[in-house]
Design a protein around this nucleic acid. Sequence first.
DNA 1: CAAAAGTACGAACGATCGTACTATTCTGAA
DNA 2: TTCAGAATAGTACGATCGTTCGTACTTTTG
Lengths: 231, 231
Amino acid sequence: MTPAADVLALLGVPPAQARESKGGRTREAILGAAVALACRTGLGGLTVGSLATEVGMSKSGMIAHFGSKEALQLAVLDAAALEFATEVVLPALSAPRGEPRVRALVDGWMVCGLMRRPGGCVFVKSSTELDEQPGPVRDRLRDQHLELARSIARIFSGGIREGHFRADADPERFAVDLHAVMLGFYHQHRLLGDPRAEERARAAVDALLDAERPPAEPARGAPDAVAEAGR
Amino acid sequence: MTPAADVLALLGVPPAQARESKGGRTREAILGAAVALACRTGLGGLTVGSLATEVGMSKSGMIAHFGSKEALQLAVLDAAALEFATEVVLPALSAPRGEPRVRALVDGWMVCGLMRRPGGCVFVKSSTELDEQPGPVRDRLRDQHLELARSIARIFSGGIREGHFRADADPERFAVDLHAVMLGFYHQHRLLGDPRAEERARAAVDALLDAERPPAEPARGAPDAVAEAGR
DNA sequence: CAAAAGTACGAACGATCGTACTATTCTGAA
DNA sequence: TTCAGAATAGTACGATCGTTCGTACTTTTG
């Protein structure tokens, strides 16, 4: 069940020693509250005072664990990424390679967007917050998004190798398109409160996948392959 | 050239009298700077002090034109919506009804997202900022997005009546899908700096439109009607 | 031209921002 | 049990937040 140690290390999980000391434990408690708070207010709206109140500590005692607000923001991004990886990406990897794995990813992602946290998603919020504010936090966020896109593309590539998708499909393009669908879903669901948001997003994903299916091998000539591909 | 008075009134433009007095003029100057600033920092990051500095006024003198920061935010949203309507939506309406009008809308929208303002788009930024912060500003923003979706759907409907799109196509769904593509475009372009962002978004729009085209009537009749529709 | 209305300023308010520095309390290994 | 170091609290700082108030100055009105 527990992922191998090297996988955890890869995700940026600190070693057990650093987690089990008193300081390590409160640090993790702070980060938990910080991620939750940042989901509601964004990374910019996450203030030292409000977070300290949230965890029931003094400002100084709380921020001492990170050094500065910027370092705290970076830690929050890392904690949120770790959470997303372990709760959405990793579980999807245990689905059969190919389209099932892609759909498992979408399912987990959607559940995450629908209900996991009150307030939404740190990444969506900080993406628009930081897109024109250069600095280490913005750079980290961009790296994480690039890494996510790579993961999606890799999972999709498995579907090409399995023959579920066209051999000439573009995994990178699929990653971008899927991300757009999820952004639209988030917008419809969170801001507009559209009850059909999930249904619409799932239809959009279906359309995305249908467009990438291999043509039913024509007996050399049949011009109606398109109709069948809709299956 | 100038839109009719009733159209302007519909868009929320104040009457000339209110615009041409001294106060009206500076109010408009403030709003211009405010929209530009909000594009960089978001509606929340738009502070009274920074805006006053930007326009070269005192805080008190500046905010006196609106009464409170919240009223300023509402005015900024309205000003930005007016700008978007006159620079993107209205011009598109002068394109021939149907697919050309849809494409004109997308073109204008894309140019707007690409280069019109340094810093991005107030609406994208405030959508994620406010999606869980109830209040008048959030309500206004939601109304504006619903209105935009209605406009898109209406323009698309024209394409159905013209026979460019399937009769059973869902204009509302198209509006949601198109918005998702634009959100993805914004994300790729602004945060990730993807040079292929525009190309990718245009391909996604093409895919969206292709999926809505009427089936080439199989029997009796040129199956190439699609090609002509593009004209 | 005088009066009235509109416009802008500067100062000050209490609150909160992030951070620095100093105490005090607590933890855990010798 | 002791004691060094980690952990947390406390306090104060300069800056900025949004807002209010009293007062000049300018425009419009009568």
